[in-house]
């Protein structure tokens, strides 16, 4: 069986500054993977490299297809969706238009409308604000919108960059409940980057730890969670 995502020997750089060194990572369809690491370790850069948002070299195979030479929009069309660092809101568009942007790669208008309604049911706050400029939403609402927008693509792989960043605990909880629910109901595969390691490890099957641009540990979530160094550095107990 081919892996959903198989990365090996991945190097990435901002101009002349290399920030990823020979990163390797693998995940199967239906899995949730957590990528943990301190601030500046290279988590965001790893997601950006997968999506072709920064210069990268190495192997990135998605569903068995090499993608490390493709442009961002082509990778999105293969079924990779990204909830980026900072949420990526289309702030001058309305909430509903943000969701329509998410479905740009799809054809059937009827299915798109159905999906929008499904997401409005899941997040009634977004429905109330459907005609409002998305930039006026609160942080939590924008995070919900970002996840809904990313899911509008009907992705085979969902990348999430610190979905809990800057959110109140109850909102964070709601976001992670939604993610767990998505996995259970639709089998969506996810690669989640989180500073809040406890939360991420709770729903992840596997976890990787990245330090200064290199993967230093990887394995089943329970194993990583039990590791003394990980507990000391990322779990705080």
């Amino acid at each position: 069986m081919t892996s959903l995502l198989k990365i090996s020997d991945l190097t990435a750089a901002y101009g002349t500054l290399t920030v990823l060194h020979s990163v390797a990572l693998e995940m199967q369809a239906g899995e949730i993977i957590a990528l943990l690491g301190a601030n500046g370790a290279g988590k965001t850069s790893t997601l950006r490299a997968i999506c072709g948002m920064i210069d990268r070299k190495g192997t990135i195979d998605f569903k068995g297809k090499p993608t490390s030479h493709l442009r961002t929009e082509a990778i999105a069309r293969l079924g990779v969706s990204h909830v980026p660092d900072g949420r990526g809101t289309f702030s001058s568009l309305t909430v509903e238009e943000n969701l329509q942007m998410g479905a740009m790669t799809r054809r059937s208008r009827r299915e798109i409308l159905e999906d929008i309604n499904t997401w409005f049911e899941r997040f009634p706050r977004l429905k109330e604000r459907r005609r409002q400029q998305a930039g006026t939403l609160s942080g939590g609402e924008q995070q919900m919108l970002a996840i809904a927008r990313a899911m509008m693509l009907r992705p085979d792989l969902l990348l999430l960059d610190e979905p809990s960043f800057g959110l109140a605990p109850q909102v964070t909880e709601q976001i992670f409940r939604t993610l767990a629910d998505l996995r259970n109901s639709q089998g969506t595969s996810m690669l989640i980057v989180e500073q809040n390691a406890n939360l991420a490890l709770e729903i992840a099957d596997h976890a990787y730890v990245i330090e200064t641009g290199s993967i230093v540990m990887g394995g089943p979530a329970a194993t990583v969670m039990a590791d003394d160094a990980v507990r000391a550095s990322y779990l705080g107990y």
């Binding site: 809101t89 289309f90 238009e97």
Partner: peptide, 24 residues
């Protein structure tokens, strides 16, 4: 039109536009 929306989206947030598959 969807292309019209894509154009407004590309101005509003070019990076996110690429991520949803728009050729900016």
């Amino acid at each position: 039109t969807r292309i019209g929306l894509a154009m407004r989206g590309a101005v509003s947030n070019p990076v996110s536009s690429g991520l949803v598959g728009v050729n900016v």
